[in-house]
Amino acid sequence: MAALAQPDIQETVIRQALSSVPVPENMRLQRLEFRNDSTGDPALFLVFSRKESQKSDEDQVEDLLTLKDAARRKLRDLELPLFPYFVFVPAE
């Protein structure tokens, strides 16, 4: 996995791994950010854009939890030395 130390290769591999993860229809993976988290540890931030949804708050939370679980399962298999965080931003 030494190649995964290079960000451009990392991004390609990560996007490939995530391509099979079902994403709620009002959401889209916008970009990946490789930066430190608030405690200074190297991390991966998956930024998703999110349009307004007609679903209930509970259903939307459930959708996001399901997405996080599925994405983390895929990313764990890559053995990345980065903890994956999820950021949800309003779609423009």
């Binding site: 608030s38 405690t39 708050d57 939370v61 459930e62 996001l64 939890l65 949800f88 309003p90």
Partner: peptide
């Protein structure tokens, strides 16, 4: 991480959905 952002990053704006997700 969310707690650090909520407590210290005054440049961010949060939505109710963010809080509900943390609760969930």
């Amino acid at each position: 991480e969310d707690r650090h952002l909520a407590d210290y990053d005054v440049g961010l704006s949060f939505e109710r959905g963010d809080a509900l997700l943390s609760i969930g």
